[in-house]
Simulated scan of single mutants.
Amino acid sequence: MPGKRMTFVEALVEGIREEMRRDPNVFVLGQDIGPFGGSLRSTLGLWEEFGPARIFDTPISESAAAGVCLGAALEGLRPILDISFGEFLASAMPQLVLHAPVVHWLTLGKARVPLTIRTKVGEGPYGGHPQCFEAWFTHVPGLKVVMPSTPADAKGLMKAAIRDDDPVLFFEHMYLYHGVRDVVPDGEHLVPIGRAEVKRPGKDVTVAATAWMVHRALQAAHQFAAEGIEVEVLDLRTLAPLDTATLLASVRKTGRLVVAHEAWKIGGLGAEVAATVAEQAFGSLRAPIVRVGAPHTPVPAHPTIRRAFLPDAQGIADAVHAVMKYAA
């Protein structure tokens, strides 16, 4: 399929732009998303094409904005709610957790909430708002959660999220925004929600990772190739519903599992991944499962301390060495 090279954020905007052209019911609502172009240029060019009738700048009230979008979705529109940074999701918890995900259930299937919520998380060259709160929301029935790692997946999952009839929470890692560039297919490029992807095949150990940690895992895998160790890198892409079939197939092949995410290790998504494998593929494991994540402290403000705090390729490499110590 023909395409063009884009950054991660350019691919996100391209996906939104295509869906707004395709469906007049799609609109975007959030803070500074109009003429300013969104924080980190996350909506650049949309206001110029679609104008204030479909690109709505809001006051600083995530709760009110979420309520407007919830009501619009119930009336048949397809809103995209732009919550600038993940730490502000807490300000809209009633709408995002208690209402949007359960309306379909409470109305016995009569009502749907086709709402896409996008937000930025993680470390990046910008320094601010680095917390990763994605694990909070994978616990909520009825809420789909995605977290892509490549520009092509960013576009494909964004288009799929907008078309989905259920609420989708779309986490966008800030280090990826302008730090990753790749070929993105033109036109009708959709990535199914709920499907992981093997980014690098291998036979010795599976590294299941999310967002920026996928690239760290690929970096570590490249280094291990010189040692004759074949690391399979699995990009989870969708955190809820988790693609357990692809995860289990990979672990049954390799017999070893490392889970890597930037969020805190305690209570992180890696715990759910590890528990799933322990419950359903314990007999295939040749070594204990190892998780790689941030230590259980607040994210440090000082750059030097933060670099020591964040998981990296070396941390993933250390985990791979740990599981490879066990005999086949």
Score class of each variant (00 low, 15 high):
V259L: 03
R163V: 02
G128D: 11
L40Q: 10
V205D: 02
W136H: 14
T304V: 14
Q314P: 01
L96Q: 08
G34N: 14
P101R: 08
A226K: 15
D153P: 00
E48M: 06
R256V: 03
P303E: 05
A152R: 03
E279I: 09
P94S: 08
R5A: 10
T238Y: 01
A281W: 03
A135L: 04
V97T: 10
A161T: 07
G228P: 11
H173M: 08
R118I: 00
K253I: 00
S91L: 13
T119Y: 05
A209C: 12
V277C: 02
G34P: 03
A327R: 15
H139I: 14
V9K: 09
P141T: 13
V103R: 08
P295A: 04
E75V: 05
W212H: 14
I55G: 03
G15H: 00
R41Q: 14
P148Y: 12
V320I: 15
L81R: 04
P185N: 07
E188G: 06
A211Y: 01
R195K: 15
E10S: 03
A240V: 08
L81Q: 08
T107S: 15
L46Q: 13
P114F: 10
Q131R: 13
I33Y: 06
R21I: 03
T119W: 03
R286C: 05
A221Y: 04
F8Y: 15
P101F: 05
S84D: 04
G255Q: 01
G127N: 11
